[in-house]
Amino acid sequence: MKFLCPSDALAPNSSLGFEVDGIKLLAVRRDGIVYFYINRCPHRGIPLEWQPDSFLDTSASLIQCATHGALFLIETGECIAGPCAGQSLKALPGREDEQGLWVQL
């Protein structure tokens, strides 16, 4: 497991981007649960964010690809709208403990 950050660095209903061992990934906190995904849109294989750490739509209820506007469910990574509908982000196993956020690559 790779350490990402202290828990308080990821606020409720927000996202953060990371690069670990050359792999771009993102973490999203929703309803107290943290979800981890590879930062790569299944449509074009490009990073999702348009600014650092900006992975969510304006309502903070969906992950959004900045390039073509594809929308993904935070809980599953499934694309529900846009050019890659039916495809999914690649989820990564991770955990949160008293030290912070950890991910398995």
Rank of each mutant, 00 (worst) to 15 (best):
P6M: 05
Q64G: 02
T58P: 01
Q87C: 10
V103G: 03
Q104K: 14
L26W: 00
G69A: 12
G86Q: 08
S14C: 03
E49D: 15
G45N: 10
A9T: 12
D21T: 09
I80S: 12
E49V: 03
A27W: 03
D53S: 05
P12C: 13
L25P: 02
I23F: 05
P12W: 13
A66M: 05
G100Y: 02
R44M: 12
P47R: 13
I74L: 04
K90H: 11
S54F: 05
E75I: 02
M1S: 04
E49N: 15
W102H: 07
D31G: 00
R95G: 13
A81P: 09
P6I: 08
L73R: 15
G45D: 06
L10M: 12
N39L: 02
T58R: 06
W50L: 08
R44A: 13
K90T: 15
E49T: 06
Q104R: 12
G17S: 11
L26S: 00
E49L: 07
A91K: 13
F36G: 07
G100N: 00
P42C: 05
P47L: 08
I63D: 02
D8L: 13
N13H: 11
I74H: 01
A91S: 14
S59C: 00
Y37W: 04
H68D: 11
A11I: 11
L56P: 06
I74Q: 01
F3H: 08
Y35Q: 01
V20L: 14
D57M: 03
L101Y: 01
A11V: 13
P93F: 03
Q87V: 02
G17V: 04
I38H: 09
H68Q: 12
S61K: 10
K90W: 07
R44I: 10
V34W: 01
I23N: 03
E19N: 14
K2H: 11
M1P: 10
W50P: 03
Q51P: 05
V20M: 13
Y37K: 00
Q87W: 02
Q87L: 11
G45L: 07
S54H: 08
I33V: 15
I74M: 00
R40T: 12
L16S: 02
A11P: 00
A70G: 15
L62F: 11
K90R: 14
W102N: 04
Y37Q: 00
W50C: 02
L71C: 10
I46S: 09
L26N: 05
D57L: 07
K2S: 12
Y37I: 01
H43N: 13
A81D: 15
N13R: 14
D21C: 12
R95Q: 15
R40I: 01
